[in-house]
Write a protein that binds this DNA or RNA. Sequence first.
DNA 1: AGTACCACCTGACGGC
DNA 2: TGCCGTCAGGTGGTAC
Length: 263
Amino acid sequence: MPELPDVENFRKYFKATSLHKRITQVHVNDERILEGVSPDQLEKDLRGRAFEGAKRHGKYFLAETSSGTWLVFHFGMMGGLRYYKRIQQQPDYERVRFDFKNGYHLAFINTRLLGSIGLASGLATFVDAKELGPDALDGLDEEGFKKLLHKSNATAKSVLTDQQKIAGIGNIYADEILFQARIHPQTPANLLSGPKRKNLYAALQMVLSEAIRAGGVVDRLPDSFLIPVRRAGRSCPRCGADIIRIDLHGRGTYLCPRCQSLS
DNA sequence: AGTACCACCTGACGGC
DNA sequence: TGCCGTCAGGTGGTAC
């Protein structure tokens, strides 16, 4: 589930807990989580250093270290960070652990191993190498959004979730954004009229900021949101019709057939 | 160049 | 009770 809002909250958590503390040791509990770096190299790069900054681009979280290299965290799904004191509190599925000189630990938790940890020489370099699009919240203005939609004949949902077009939106928030904008996920992006495109842009900004505000707790999302009832047969929070599930690009896609009609 | 599909991984859940 | 199949999700690779 970690999409942009969740990763933004991890970043804030990291900033509040893990900056400016000397790293004494790095434990790689499962090497499969490392991407392009060996446990030895990671240890060598980090031991004796500290994290000095925390940035985010799309679903990626990057921590700047005092050596100038950056640690790249990707959460895949069902992952997160936990800062804790006693080793008895070690969480399940802790794949990498950073020990700090103050006795605390930072766990990189990643249940399904779909996430990764790697190194990069800088934020811009990383974004370039991955060919990521602008960050959905911090880097996408309405004009850029318009151009993006205009030149793509893919479906609206596909454009929203394509990280090379826009970075940060995954399957779940894409459904929410389309629901809020009352746009059918299969609408071709380049057919979205001016008003619909404006609605979509506004919904994108609104959904992501509200989700950040909710702090990853579904119960704190606005009552108007689809996410809490995102299952076939539940009632649309707007009109009460049955939510349906369709298969789009191999992903489960939920929508209200009454609010989000094609055409 | 763009799109489509599968593999990766493991917990939850439904069916038998 | 417990086994088995299926689904969930993001990304990267391969095939078209």
